[in-house]
Structures are given as structure tokens and as C-alpha cells.
Amino acid sequence: MQPPPGGGKRDFGDLFDAPLLKTGNTIRTCHNPCLMALLEVRHLTKRWPTGRLALDDVSFEVQQGEILGLLGHNGAGKSTIMGITLGMVRPDTGEVRIGGRSVQKDRGGALQQIGAIYEAAVFYDYLSGWQNLRVLCSLSGWWDETEVKRVVQMVNLNRAIHQKTATYSHGMRQRLALAQALLPQPKILLLDEPTDGLDPEGIREFRELILHLRQHQGMTIMLNSHLLGEIEQMCDRCVIIKDGKKVFAGPVPSQEKTRRIFQLETSDIGLAREVLGRAGATMDKHGIVEVPLNMEPHDLVTALVQGKVQVSAWQPHRRTLEELYMGLSSKS
């Protein structure tokens, strides 16, 4: 059997014809200070009744059109942030604002703009996928059969939508979960570990779908995961939570445009560090050199050579999210 064109990838392009949503332009640049923050998390603190501190003064923003990854180990507090954002968990202090509306003060208004998969999406097994969508959409006060059909087709469930969800595989349930989150036309999607339990094929399909949503509809997405690869491949920025504290917020390393990092190979590590230090650059113990913004990389190489450092190799280095995450973990 011949694989479908595009190596088995689905083309979602023709399915993004919702007139209310389509921007007409492909949206790629995201971390732009001119864009408004669609979701603001402000000084969230939450202590569970057991006394455990779940969140400790966590603040960050999700800007319009960006995909922000919320990263952390199990129990770090990621789902608690999601829960507070959806008004299901009450913070001790702080608030979440969606499109300028406080979830804690005007939950109904704030949640009009959100679609979410929060923790494992559990559907009513004795209802069909379609009936599940109907029940859920009625709670948003909305039902548009044409739009529902479009979204069902987009998540590739059109053949199974009238079957009982008891017969669905895990992947189909996740796709149904995404469909319900996309109805009715949210501005921001909250996805809580959406690829948990999916097979590699399912993960790839899910990832492509999410990226298409952002690219074609300008959807703002907050994605919660403990899978570094998932965050790295999908997100523009990430917030790393460790034991309830925000330990990092910034671009995903592989998406970094402004930082220039090089790998220096030399037998004179000590001398090299001294020379680079004099030039205003820093180098870690693995020879990773960060070039200051006011310098050109070749200026540093010149300085090294003039400082009599034996340079065996000097090549651009792309820092991985894993390195960043592990670095933060080892620091704390």
C-alpha cells in the first residue's frame, strides 16, 4: 500500500475555513511585546489543606498567538495552575485574568474565551461522541451543527462520532477531547498533558494539529507537559515550575533567536576562561560560550588566539531544553 502524500501526514489546511476564526495570514512570530497578554497569571499561591505548598507566588503571561509550555516534574504544580485558570481550584492569593477578565471574579465571562483539556478527559461512555459534544456545548450555551461537523472532521473523528465513546481508543478520546475544547471557537486553548498515553503516531498527529491551529487560526495555546521533547517541538516559550515555584520563563532554547552560543574545544580551559572573561564573555565547564550581544563571535576567536589559547574547534551550539531543565534542576 502506498503511503499517503506527505509521508502519512494529514493536511488540515482545507479544514480551517471558519470565517470567524481564520485570520487570512499565517501567524508565526509570537513573543512580540506589542501583542497583548491574553492570559495573565498573577502571583498565584496555593497551599493544600494537607499543608503542602502547591504554588508559591507564580506569575507569567501568555501572549496572543503564542504557544506557551508549562514544564515541570510530576507534582510540580502545573495542573494546579491549570485548575486555577479554569476556576476549579481556588488560589490562596493571586488571580488569573483571561482577556482582561478575572477568573476568580467573573469566571463565566473569563471562561467564554477558553477551551480546555484539563487532566484526563473522561467522557460519558454510554453516549456517542456527538452526544457528548452536545452535552458539553450546551453548557457553553452554544450549538452550531455545521461548526461541530467541521471540528469533528478536523480531528478526524467524523466516521466514529456517532459511536458510543466506550468503543473509542485512547487516541480517539484525546481527539474528541480536543474537539470539545475547540467548541465553541475559543481564543485560547489550555491543554493539560494532552499526549499522555498516545502512541508515537498519535503524538505526531496531535502535535501537527496544534501547530496548524496556531498557524492558521492564530490560536493561543498553553500546554502543560512534563515531556521536554513535546514542549521543545511545539512551544515558543516555556515556564518551568519546580516545587511550586517558577524557576524559568523565557523562549524555548531551540527557538532562541537572540542568544548566540558556541562550543569551544580547547585543552587550555583555564586560560580560555580567563581570556573570555576579560573579553566580557562567559564559558561553562563544558566549553559552552555565550557571546555577549555587543560582540561578534569572530572577535572572541581573535581574542582567544591572541591570548595564546589552543583552539581545536569553535562551532555554534544549540542549547537543548533538556540542558536548560537539567541545569535548573541541578542549581536548585
Partner: peptide, 8 residues
Amino acid sequence: RLLLARPV
């Protein structure tokens, strides 16, 4: 959790 992720 699925129901209350809605604006109800």
C-alpha cells in the same frame, strides 16, 4: 472537570 471547564 470536563463540565466545569465550560463557562457554567
